[in-house]
Design a binder for these strands. Structure first.
Lengths: 237, 237
DNA sequence: CGCGAAGTTGATTACTATCAATCTGAGTGG
DNA sequence: CCACTCAGATTGATAGTAATCAACTTCGCG
């Protein structure tokens, strides 16, 4: 029987386990987790609510857990010396937060909730135990991290080569694909992030993003009103 | 006794082991590897030469090993649908090649030698065995991958925000730092890559890179002649 | 010496950032 | 219910930066 995924229900054990296993399987759909492993996860996982505008984790905080997103959207931010912020991604349900903290034991970026959200927290210690007792788990973790690496590389490609309008369209199509993987509406959706956030992600300025939206709308590739977007273009990817 | 690291010497076991352990320790300098682990590595590692201009691994090839660079420089390339290439990094001795292949079992990028180079190859199978029998190993791998993630994020920040000249200077300083970590000359060195490669990495065109070099030279921040570079600027990072 | 690849320089065009004004819609309180 | 407010978004004019196209230079090499 499916549990409703309302906020009040997320504290129940079954949903908590469902969240973590679902998250892991989102990334590694070729594998199914043993019930034995699910038991371990069940004992060690904890949920956490993150209000809109607050942090899942902050820069320089000690790293001691990974977070699987249950509900809501986030933005990952890195800061340069001047305090100027640059957005490296918009993780969504099923994604993992905090992978970059693994390297040196503290976070090199921070993650902010774009909506009221809920996370499933698995301590790094638990993950190590899991990997030790259940070898496939380490492969799963490697895959998750590897996927993050190739996703970032793809973003870099987009940033470096495409003009503003194509860059925005590519972004919208990428978003649409991610929605599709999660069974959400793919061609007609609300953007969870502001124009400024999109600009920060695409390496553009807010005004340029706004103009690009208008242009794509005008030529008929998309329909857009504020944060509501409908994609009419056929994906070229 | 130190073995000379000439090309003719790399086939000896001791040097081969030294290469892998050194590479691992470059990434995880807080940890020292057990002699027991070194034995396992010694048995399973193999060396491979890669001539200038040839591939360490190619796009879409099946993933079955990681490569530690022993000698030489490489460029990592991702291609978009149009076949346009974009360079995501310039790995050097001690760095690991092929991390992105882990996700789906085949490479999503390719790596080309900029000089005649030598690699140490460890099969993924061996790595899994190692992780299983020697738990700290998996933490080491996580760190290596995590480091790759945060390095890519840093690159994205640079790409998105800085004007051409600052971008080039930041690139040179990053390169200098990496040389420093390897005990190589930090302020006076030969670039292993062409102007076009730098342009591909920085998201610029070759001509723009060339102009930026000239400008930095003119204002006295660096001295440059062809691929020879001397950095006179004090790093701001 | 001549050739070709890599690099430099110049003139022009195209694009994005910047600065500034305006618009829109959600939330607030009278 | 309506005016008020304010953050987010849009639009316009202009300046600044990088891309493009093209000519030329430098250097290594047979």
């Amino acid at each position: 029987m499916l549990m409703p995924t309302t906020v009040s229900a997320i504290t129940s054990q079954s949903t908590r386990v469902a969240c973590a296993s679902c998250a892991l399987q989102t990334h590694c759909f070729t594998q199914r987790l043993d019930t034995e492993v699910l038991d371990v996860i069940e004992k060690s996982i904890s949920t956490r609510r993150v209000a809109r505008g607050t942090y899942a984790y902050r820069l320089c905080e000690p790293f001691n857990a990974l977070y699987f997103i249950h509900q809501g959207f986030f933005k990952n931010v890195v800061l340069n010396e001047d305090g100027q912020e640059f957005i490296t991604g918009f993780p969504m349900p099923g994604d993992v937060l905090g992978l970059d903290g693994c390297a040196d034991g503290y976070y090199r970026s921070q993650s902010i909730a774009l909506q009221d959200s809920t996370l499933c927290e698995i301590s790094f210690e638990t993950l190590n135990d899991l990997s030790f007792n259940y070898p496939p788990m380490q492969q799963i973790l490697h895959r998750i991290m590897s996927r993050e690496i190739s996703r970032n590389q793809k973003s870099m490609l987009m940033l470096g080569n495409l003009p503003a309008e194509e860059r925005l369209l590519a972004f919208l199509q990428e978003l649409s694909q991610q929605f599709a993987m999660r069974g959400m509406s793919t061609n007609d959706f609300d953007l969870p992030m502001s124009r400024d956030d999109i600009a920060g992600y695409l390496g553009l300025k807010m005004e340029t993003v706004s103009r690009a939206f208008t242009k794509l709308h005008t030529v008929g590739l998309i329909h857009v009103h504020r944060r509501r977007v409908r994609i009419d273009a056929v994906s070229t990817a």
